[in-house]
Computed example of a mutant assay.
Amino acid sequence: MAGEATPTMRRRQVGAELRRLREAADTTIDQAAAHLQCSASKISRMETGTGIQRTRDVTALLDLYGVTGEQLRDELLGMVRSARQQDWWHSYTDAVPRWFERFMAAESSAVSVEEFENQLVPGLLQTPGYARAVLRAANTSLDDDEIDRRVTVRMERQKRLAGDDPLSLWVVLDESVLHRHVGGSEVMRVQLAHLADRAAQPNITVQVLPYALGAYAAFGYPFTILAFSAPPGGEVVHMDQLHSGLYLERDADLRRYKLAMNRLRAAAMDPERSNRLIIEAAEEMG
């Protein structure tokens, strides 16, 4: 998955180009909607890549915007057709909640992820045993096969951390994450050893906020910032809730969370000291 132009990424690219062409043609969203005889919200969804982009609709918009160059039209329509392919996680839609599919789409398209966590090791750095314990505790109604499917999805997501163009991951953890016995001492020992190994990868940075620090920025409020390079680029903040996810994309919100992440990085121990603390915690597990 790493380095590939996923269907989600292609939809974002098509949408960004449609918006650029519409603005260059001095055409409003309402005018584009009138041309397609659809709602303005449909045009907006097409431009953000969150809505269906049909070949006939894109062709009609290109005509409206006066795009006559065959090369541009062919490239854009080719991207529309390739974007119809399903993302990798569609084969696991029975194993994950619908609301989490949007997060996996964003994660698959992101070039970097910054995450603050004060309770758990982030999913991208979990071992199968740790992930199974977390998922079992949170989903008591699921049977073993369903839990295994969700663990598999979590392990598949981690493939973004390897390959020729791996995801850049920067994690800040509360020290309590290292000492909470999720799944028991042996599961935690393996998890912490794995966390220390992962932190040695050049594309992964792990910092720990020590107990001695007391209160700090975003205390008690874990969040994730995902950044994108492919058009339309930008960033989004994601926060997990019990049965849903919250997304923030306004500039003011992004500035607040970027500032909070910068303050967390500054307050945390440096990566080398953090890794030593992780290894010590693993050794204490026996």
Results as ranks from 00 to 15, higher is better:
1 M>R: 13
2 A>G: 15
5 A>E: 09
11 R>N: 05
11 R>A: 03
11 R>K: 09
16 A>K: 00
17 E>G: 02
17 E>V: 10
19 R>G: 03
21 L>P: 10
22 R>V: 08
25 A>R: 07
25 A>T: 11
26 D>C: 11
28 T>P: 08
31 Q>W: 10
36 L>A: 08
38 C>M: 08
38 C>D: 07
38 C>P: 05
38 C>W: 12
43 I>G: 00
44 S>H: 09
45 R>C: 02
45 R>L: 08
45 R>Q: 06
47 E>H: 06
47 E>G: 05
49 G>P: 02
57 D>I: 04
58 V>R: 00
61 L>F: 02
63 D>N: 06
64 L>M: 12
65 Y>W: 11
66 G>W: 07
68 T>V: 14
68 T>W: 11
69 G>H: 12
69 G>S: 14
70 E>C: 10
76 L>Y: 04
76 L>V: 06
80 V>R: 01
81 R>A: 14
81 R>G: 08
83 A>P: 02
83 A>M: 06
87 D>R: 06
89 W>K: 00
92 Y>M: 10
93 T>I: 14
95 A>R: 08
96 V>H: 04
97 P>R: 11
97 P>H: 09
101 E>A: 13
102 R>A: 06
103 F>D: 01
103 F>P: 00
103 F>A: 03
105 A>I: 05
105 A>S: 11
109 S>N: 07
111 V>Q: 09
112 S>F: 08
112 S>K: 13
113 V>E: 06
114 E>R: 11
114 E>T: 13
121 V>P: 02
125 L>C: 12
126 Q>E: 08
130 Y>A: 00
132 R>S: 05
132 R>H: 10
132 R>W: 06
133 A>L: 10
134 V>K: 01
134 V>Q: 05
136 R>K: 15
139 N>C: 07
140 T>A: 15
141 S>V: 15
141 S>C: 14
141 S>D: 15
141 S>A: 15
144 D>V: 15
145 D>Q: 15
150 R>Y: 04
150 R>A: 04
151 V>Y: 01
153 V>M: 02
157 R>H: 02
159 K>N: 11
167 L>R: 10
168 S>M: 14
168 S>N: 15
174 D>T: 06
175 E>L: 10
175 E>C: 07
179 H>G: 06
182 V>P: 02
182 V>H: 02
183 G>D: 07
185 S>E: 12
185 S>N: 13
186 E>C: 11
188 M>A: 04
192 L>P: 04
199 A>M: 07
200 A>W: 03
207 Q>M: 06
208 V>E: 01
210 P>R: 09
216 Y>Q: 02
217 A>I: 07
221 Y>N: 15
222 P>F: 03
223 F>K: 09
225 I>L: 09
226 L>G: 00
228 F>C: 03
232 P>N: 09
236 V>Y: 00
237 V>Y: 02
242 L>K: 07
250 R>L: 10
251 D>A: 15
255 R>D: 15
256 R>W: 09
265 R>M: 01
266 A>T: 12
270 D>P: 02
270 D>G: 12
273 R>N: 10
277 L>F: 01
284 E>L: 11
284 E>N: 13
286 G>R: 12
286 G>M: 09
